[in-house]
Design a protein around this nucleic acid. Structure first.
Length: 786
DNA sequence: TGTGAGACAATTTTT
DNA sequence: TTGTCTCACA
């Protein structure tokens, strides 16, 4: 049953009834003055600037409960008239549970979720008004790029020069800004003609395929609002109260969407922290916070500054760090908690030692009776999790990786989903392409090329093209039979859907298509596991009303299944850790180039650096009792050793709140070092970073380095030579001291291609002519001065 | 059409 | 080291 906001049902139970039944809720108890103010200002625009650990979630929860309770009774506010937007599905789920808990009864029917899931819900009802059918497919980023690649093939665009992935990034960023192809064209700001053209074709193609990508969900809504003010009007009237969490991370499209919907009742409450804005790479605009007061004149602003989470040392260290950023709104966090431990900063020899150190600390904590679920390892990037996983496996410590490879990203699940998509939505070209030859049906490149050609020329989807072509001599008889058979199957399965449950249909599809047989007869070692996963998928689909809602769930909501019953150490990225808290937090990999990440600085200069710093701030403030920062002097990457400098953030932490263990050498760590760990003396053997030696010539186990950097201050000296952040955003960084940025005409050397001359420079990518090898495109970190 | 060998380039964050 | 891509050959 679709819930329609225009036709709000009467209450199942009358307000009077509930008043008697429910005990008087005490959710308002134990709030401090500011929190209470934020909770009770129900009407009118409200901006809550909530620092880390100030009870933001609590305020949101209580506010929602308060709304439902008071307005539900006095003004017959129905849950369906509340629009509550969170940043992640996890947060939405948590909110649902907490509000239910506070009220002592479950709340249903309200519009609670992420921007994308809410926009999708809204869009499905009006899809035909933006040129889609209501069963449109939502493409994941993989499919997006594949589709763009096809378009570029057809347009004969050199994908070496313009990688589809990169162009898709540009297009998505336009969508983040709320710019449709037409709007991009009008806009003077963007000069990239090629990308504009591709964007237009891409959107046309999406319409033919009856598909929308992530950005479209919001963008189509905006178009809908613009072209059909009467529809917008009805939603505006419906949503009497709007709540937004993590407001600092909304992008322009989301902001426009919100503003459009909140403009009539103006009961909008946004909660955010400018110091925790870490998604500008995804188009988020911190400026939305500043704009709030001008959009909603007379808006009330409440600041939450009392931190309930962290010890004073942790709080002070994080606060000091974030002051290195300019242009903050400025908050002063304070706490009443007792002084706890200082923030630990540990320098180690290499990544392995770092993992060992963290492992030891975790073991030590466990032996004190502290549960593993109170500990987290927060890394900058996904690939860093592996070292820690390996170490924890060796130690036998249970852990879980949040945001790792997802269930539905597995090959067999994606294949099965492609079958479901084809059944649910006959025009899904990408799904068709994926499974047309899985299991093998003899349909190869040549055949597909013919189909693509036809589908482009006629502006129809791939399956539609196939349907046309099997009736012609265009394809070989064998192909016609194979594809015709498959299309016939799909037709049959679709008809079957009308009479049979979709669970049974899915089983039939997987069976009759030969897909399960393919794995059953497969000799691959993980084939049985894949069959298991398929079974799981079949059982999961049973919980949904129809295939479309299942597919939407998979692409927008579905999260990794985690059995939370066991005590486990959490490993995740800093981004994923936003909004969470742990007693003991490990923050490894604080090295220049890793964190702050090189790419962030290359692409956005000082702005990028500040965002990285906010990320560091988020990391430290996740900790309640202890934060341990660590950095390694060397990292082995693909069997090659690379030396690294400690992150500048390490230096920015205030000494009075930090305990640095690297200064006295590693041997002093806790007074005991496991056999094989590097002692103080080994620290002296550090390779000299100032030398112009290629990184791979180091052998950290050979001990051939020179004694050089034993004294304090060397970091600064080396860094001055090496890193050069220019104010306008141009950054250059390299581990060899003499080179700054390469320019055209420079003589350089590549470890494989030998000497060469720079022919062209594009960011950190160089086009170099190598003698006897030819012209190559390489990244400048692989280049040494000639 | 399917495959296997060899060339090549190289590391973010996610709804 | 590893994933992706191309090209030659079966």
């Amino acid at each position: 049953m679709m819930d329609d906001p225009f036709e709000i049902d009467e209450f199942a139970a009358s307000p009077e009834m509930r008043l008697q039944d429910a005990p008087a809720p005490d959710y308002l108890a134990n709030l401090n003055a500011e929190q209470r103010e934020a909770v009770e200002a129900l009407d009118g625009p409200l901006l809550v600037l909530a620092g880390a650990g100030t009870g933001k979630t609590r305020v949101l929860t209580t506010r929602l409960a308060h709304l439902l309770e008071t307005k539900g009774q006095t003004e017959r506010l129905h849950p369906q008239q509340i629009l509550a937007v969170t940043f992640t599905n996890r947060a939405a789920k948590e909110m649902q549970e907490r509000v239910a808990h506070a009220l002592g009864r479950p709340v249903e029917g309200w519009w609670l979720g992420t921007f994308h899931s809410l926009a999708a819900r809204l869009l499905r009802r009006h899809a035909e008004l933006v040129g889609l059918q209501s069963n449109f497919t939502i493409l994941d980023s993989d499919d997006q790029v594949r589709l763009l690649k096809q378009i570029m093939d057809a347009e004969q665009i050199d994908q070496k020069k313009w990688p589809a992935k990169q162009l898709m990034g540009i297009i998505q960023r336009w969508k983040d800004k709320g710019l449709s192809p037409e709007r991009v064209n009008e806009s003077v700001e963007f000069a990239n003609g090629g990308a504009k053209y591709l964007y237009k074709i891409y959107q046309e193609r999406l319409a033919v395929l009856n598909a929308a990508d992530f950005g479209d969900l919001l963008l189509h809504c905006l178009t809908l609002f613009q072209k059909h003010p009467e529809i917008l009007r009805r939603y505006q009237e419906t949503f009497r109260y709007v709540l937004v969490d993590e407001y600092q991370d909304t992008n322009v499209a989301q902001y426009l969407w919100l503003r459009a919907l909140a403009m009539v009742h103006r009961n909008i409450c946004c909660v955010g922290d400018d110091d925790q804005a870490i998604y500008s790479w995804r188009g988020a605009e911190v400026g939305n916070i500043l704009r709030f007061e001008s959009d909603f004149p007379g808006a009330k602003v409440v600041r939450l500054e009392q931190n309930y989470r962290s010890t004073p040392h942790i709080l002070a260290a994080a606060s000091k760090l974030i002051t290195f950023n300019d242009g903050r709104l400025g908050k002063e966090l304070w706490t009443e908690l007792d002084t706890g431990e200082k923030v630990f900063v540990k320098g180690v020899w290499d990544g392995e030692a770092e993992a060992r150190l963290v492992g030891e600390d975790i073991e030590a904590l466990q032996s004190c009776g502290i549960g593993a679920s109170q500990m987290a390892i927060l890394v900058r990037a996904g690939f860093q999790t592996r070292e820690f996983e390996e170490r924890l496996i060796t130690l036998g410590i249970p852990y879980r990786v949040v945001g790792g490879p997802r269930f539905y990203e597995r090959q067999e699940i994606r294949d099965a989903l492609a079958y479901i998509r084809m059944v649910a939505q006959p025009d899904d070209s990408l799904a068709f392409e994926r499974i047309v030859n899985v299991p093998k049906r003899g349909v190869g490149k040549a055949t597909l090329q013919t189909l693509h050609q036809y589908s482009r020329d006629q502006a129809v989807s791939l399956p539609a093209a196939a349907l046309d072509l099997i009736g012609t001599e265009e394809l070989k008889p064998k192909m016609r039979q194979a594809i015709g058979g498959l299309l016939g199957d799909f037709k049959r399965w679709r008809e079957m859907l009308e009479t049979t449950s979709h669970v049974a249909v899915l089983e039939t599809v997987l069976d009759e298509s030969g897909y399960t047989d393919m794995w059953r007869t497969s000799k691959e070692i993980d084939a049985p596991g894949r069959l298991e996963n398929l079974k799981e998928l079949v059982s999961a689909i049973g919980e949904f009303e129809n295939l479309t809602s299942f597919l939407e769930h998979v692409s927008l909501v579905m999260e990794n299944e985690q059995n939370a019953d066991q005590e486990k150490v959490t490993i995740m990225t800093l981004h994923a850790a936003k909004g969470l808290e742990f007693d003991y937090v490990f923050l490894p990999g604080w090295e220049e180039g890793v964190f702050p990440h090189q790419r962030a600085m290359d692409e956005s200069g000082v702005k990028g650096l500040e965002e990285e710093r906010r990320l560091a701030y988020v990391g430290i403030t996740r900790a309640r009792k202890r934060a341990t920062v660590s950095y390694a002097a060397n990292r082995r990457i693909y069997n090659q050793w690379q030396s690294a400098l400690p992150s500048r953030f390490v230096d920015e932490l205030p000494d009075e709140h930090v305990e640095r263990i690297s200064d006295t050498g590693l041997g002093n760590h806790r007074g005991n070092v496991s056999p094989g760990a590097w002692g103080a003396d080994d620290w002296m053997k550090m390779p000299s970073w100032a030398d112009n030696k290629p990184a791979e010539s180091y052998n950290p186990y050979g001990g051939t380095g020179e004694r050089r950097f034993a004294s304090a201050g060397w970091q600064d000296r080396v860094r001055k030579n090496v890193i050069d952040v220019k104010p306008d955003g141009e950054t250059s960084y390299t581990t060899s001291s003499k080179s700054s940025k390469y320019k055209v005409g420079d003589a350089v050397r590549h470890r494989k291609f030998g000497p060469g001359t720079v022919k062209a420079v594009d960011g950190n990518k160089l086009e170099i002519h190598f003698e006897g090898v030819g012209t190559k495109k390489v990244v400048d970190s692989f280049i040494l001065p000639g």
